[in-house]
Every structure is written in structure tokens, then in C-alpha cells.
Design a protein around this nucleic acid. Structure first.
Lengths: 115, 115
DNA sequence: GCGATGCATGTCACTATTGACATATGTCGG
DNA sequence: CCGACATATGTCAATAGTGACATGCATCGC
């Protein structure tokens, strides 16, 4: 894993061991984290775009301002469930959410003809 | 909510109250359940397609056969996190996962020009 | 200055989700 | 019939996620 990315993740609270590439973080795990980050960004974008406060969004989903803040910060203590639920509840289209998945997920290397 | 769908959900263990349309299940909640169902189906398809047993998949993600069974059954006791993590770990492309989201999410009614 | 507002961060008691295990059901081949 | 295998379902102790709350730090308008 690149240093830059590692530090980016650790800054937000994800535990990324020294040997992360092989032990702590499987490819799937790290892809999932990326998805979360994407969704977090999407949530903030959507919220700000609609000129809502975190408190407003929180009420809409029956949660609290602090949790919404954590969602947008990509805090490890928020589940994918909650993130997606919040996005849907605040009116983000499934397509946008879907895009976050493609964007955050490693594209398969396009196979080069070997012969 | 349609009777058919309601029964389908209850059969798998989701609690869907009588007044679900208005109280128990918000649109977002029910959309999220649909997403889970889609992903569950996708997981089974992928696994069977690759001729893996549930036990094999379980080992790959450090879980147990019973949990994989529950995942594929769309059991409410499995989180979206686990479901997605499993899909990614077993090699499902982000695109496929993304499609589940668009498929399961209510499309916005295409606005008809009013004048 | 100061009160109000919006966001970030830490903590905590309560609940949901977890892997593991036992066990039931079915389906093969012999 | 009987083992071996694949899957389904229920349970449980351990852990992870939850909303709520306190509090800190900016940035406003006055």
C-alpha cells in the first residue's frame, strides 16, 4: 500500500498495520474502505448541495449530529449499512451510490493478448 | 407495500409491521432491504458459478459456513458490510455490486412536462 | 466582546452483528 | 441402509455499531 494512502486512512482512524498489504488489510477490506470514503464524500456533497445541516439530516434518519459528522468523516465506527441508509433517506439516487462502488473498486486489469 | 413483497420479506425474517408503509419501514429502509436481497442473490450466483461450497467461501473470508448460508438467504442478521466484503473477497466486480444497487433502488419517476 | 449556529471528537450504556458450534435436512454413491 | 458431503437454521458469548450527550473550535451578526 502506498504511504500516502496509508496515512490518509490512519488519519481517519483506520488501523493499518505495517504488514497491511499481506495481513491486516486484504484487498477486499481496503476496497471496502475506499467505498466508504467515496460514500462519505457523496453524503457531504449531497447534504451541502441541498443546504442541509448535519442536525437536519440526523433528525431525518433518527440519529444525531455527531454520528452524521462521523459518517462524513469516514469514521470506522460507522457501518456501511448506516451510510447507505442515510444516503437513501436523504434522497441520493441508487445510481450515485452505485457509482461510488465502481469508482472505489479496483478495476480488473484489461487482459493483454499473450499470443 | 404489496402483499406479495411483504410476505416475501417476512418469510426471510424481516419484521414488517402492518403499517409498514408509513411507520416501520421508510422508503429508504425497504430499498436497503432490496439491495441486500439483490446482493444475496448475486453472491449465490457467483459462488455456484465458480463451483465453490459455502464452506470454501467462509474460509476465504474467515467466517463460517452457517454465516454464508445466512448471507445467501438474505437473513436480517447479516450486515451490508459483511455481504459486500464477502462479495469483494470472492472476486465479484464492483460493477456487479453497483448494478445491484441500481436494480434494487426505486428509479425516480421520469418527469412529464406539465405544460 | 458575546450569543447563536454548525461541525468535530470523545465517551458511554444499549443493542445488533459476529464466528463458532450443534444439529437437521437433503442428496448423492455404493 | 449408510457414510460423506452441501446446505439450512437456531443459539450463544464476544465484539462492533448505535444514539445520545458533553464539549471544543470556528464563524457569523450584532
Amino acid at each position: 500500500m502506498k504511504q500516502a494512502k496509508k496515512q490518509r486512512l490512519e488519519a481517519v482512524g483506520w488501523k493499518v498495520g505495517d504488514v497491511s498489504e499481506f495481513l491486516s488489510l486484504s484487498a477486499a477490506d481496503s476496497a471496502l474502505i475506499d467505498v466508504r470514503m467515496q460514500l462519505a464524500k457523496e453524503l457531504r456533497k449531497h447534504r451541502v448541495g441541498h443546504r442541509l445541516t448535519q442536525t437536519a439530516v440526523a433528525h431525518r434518519i433518527g440519529s444525531s449530529q455527531s454520528r452524521v459528522a462521523k459518517m462524513e468523516a469516514g469514521d470506522p465506527s460507522v457501518s456501511l449499512d448506516l451510510l447507505v441508509r442515510t444516503l437513501l433517506a436523504s434522497g441520493t439516487s441508487g445510481t450515485v451510490i452505485a457509482n461510488a462502488f465502481v469508482a472505489a473498486t479496483p478495476r480488473r486489469r484489461t487482459a493483454r493478448r499473450s499470443a
